[in-house]
């Protein structure tokens, strides 16, 4: 199947912007929309050196709109009690700078956004973990959610069923890091380091990641006190996360990837099927990645969508994490 065989509008290409420079690169490479975060715990990529000040966000919106590109703000973490004001301010900033949509996960934050700015377009973040029509309708009914970013655990057939049963648009991840755990429901980093992905917006914080040279030509990757993997020092590897580490079962001495191999999700081969299933937007992951990554991935997907030849795989191998790719859950039930 190719895109040209499908009688629907081409999907919106939603691209990551970790910095103003990456945002510019994404826009110039052909993004239809970009998503960003503020420089604090209100978004799930709260890494040092990333993200936008309110002023930068205002400029980003102006630049995006001058190129007919929409700008979304991810406010997709879970405010701990006593700290709600930071998330409230993020929603206020989004409204004040004219953001095109806020991408939300917490029910309380959605309640605030919908109650305070009914006209501010609301998307449901993948971090909300809404994987069934009922869960999605819960948010649509209560907070007039216009689009859901689907969890990366459904097959294409399941996405088709889901899209026919929800009253909003569906945005589907097509490229980038693939989280193995149900989004918004993972405390592995918190358990190992004390920094919470849900509350602090950081998975695998750099300050807790260590690479120690050990005997031979080997490097030990640690998160907090826990050894996540041992790797040849010259091997190109992705950024270490607990869910992509190698471990032993207690009764077996062969190390294995207990959860998933370090691979990059790449659905270029499934784009047409996803459109036919009802996806209205394609999302590229990677706000923590370089401007060069953003430029090449966005350009490749822009070309794939424009040419209508989405069944063919554009050359993306050099930006994939450790060079290996996967269809993840989208490829079929055998992934589970």
């Amino acid at each position: 199947m190719t895109v040209s065989e499908i009688d629907v509008a081409p999907p919106e290409l939603v691209c990551p912007a970790g910095t103003p420079a990456a945002l510019r690169a994404a826009v110039e490479a052909g993004a239809d929309a970009v998503y960003c975060g503020l420089r604090n715990a209100t978004n799930a990529r709260n890494f040092p050196g990333l993200n936008f000040t309110p002023d930068e966000l205002r400029e980003a919106v102006a630049f995006g709109h001058s190129r007919n590109v929409r700008v979304f703000l991810a406010v997709n973490t879970f405010p701990p009690a006593g700290h709600f004001d930071l998330w409230r301010e993020a929603i206020d900033v989004a409204h004040d700078v004219g953001i095109d949509a806020v991408v939300l996960a917490d029910i309380g934050v959605a309640d605030y956004a919908a109650g305070t700015y009914p006209e501010l377009r609301r998307h449901l973040s993948v971090q909300a973990g809404a994987a069934s029509p009922e869960a999605i309708r819960y948010f649509c009914d209560a907070y007039a959610i216009r689009r859901v970013v689907l969890p990366r655990l459904l097959t294409v057939a399941e996405i088709r069923l889901l899209c026919s049963a929800i009253p909003c648009e569906a945005e589907v991840f097509v490229f980038g890091n693939i989280g193995m755990m149900a989004e918004g429901r993972c405390s592995l980093t918190s358990y190992a380091t004390g920094t919470s992905t849900n509350m602090d917006g950081i998975c695998s914080p750099a300050c807790d990641v260590r690479f120690d040279p050990i005997e031979g030509n080997t490097t030990a990757a640690r998160i907090g006190p826990f050894l996540i993997d041992r790797l040849p020092s010259d091997e190109r590897t992705g950024y270490p996360t607990i869910c992509k580490g190698r471990y032993f079962r207690a009764d077996d001495d062969r190390p294995y990837y207990a959860f998933e191999e370090p691979r990059t999700l790449n659905l270029t081969g499934l784009l047409a099927e996803l459109i036919a299933a009802g996806a209205t937007a394609f999302k590229i992951e990677g706000r923590q990645r370089s401007r060069a990554y953003v430029r090449s991935v966005v350009a490749a997907f822009r070309a794939a969508i424009n040419s209508g030849a989405v069944g063919r795989s554009p050359d993306l191998g050099d930006v994939a994490e450790s060079g290996r790719e996967t269809l993840g859950a989208f490829g079929g039930k055998q992934w589970r």
């Binding site: 755990m181 149900a182 429901r185 993972c186 405390s187 592995l188 959860f259 055998q334 589970r336």
Partner: peptide, 17 residues
């Protein structure tokens, strides 16, 4: 600490869910 669509028990034994 985490949930997944994938069964990690099955995976550990070379099976799927």
């Amino acid at each position: 600490l985490a949930l997944s669509a994938r069964c990690y028990h099955a995976r550990a034994h070379g099976k799927t869910r």
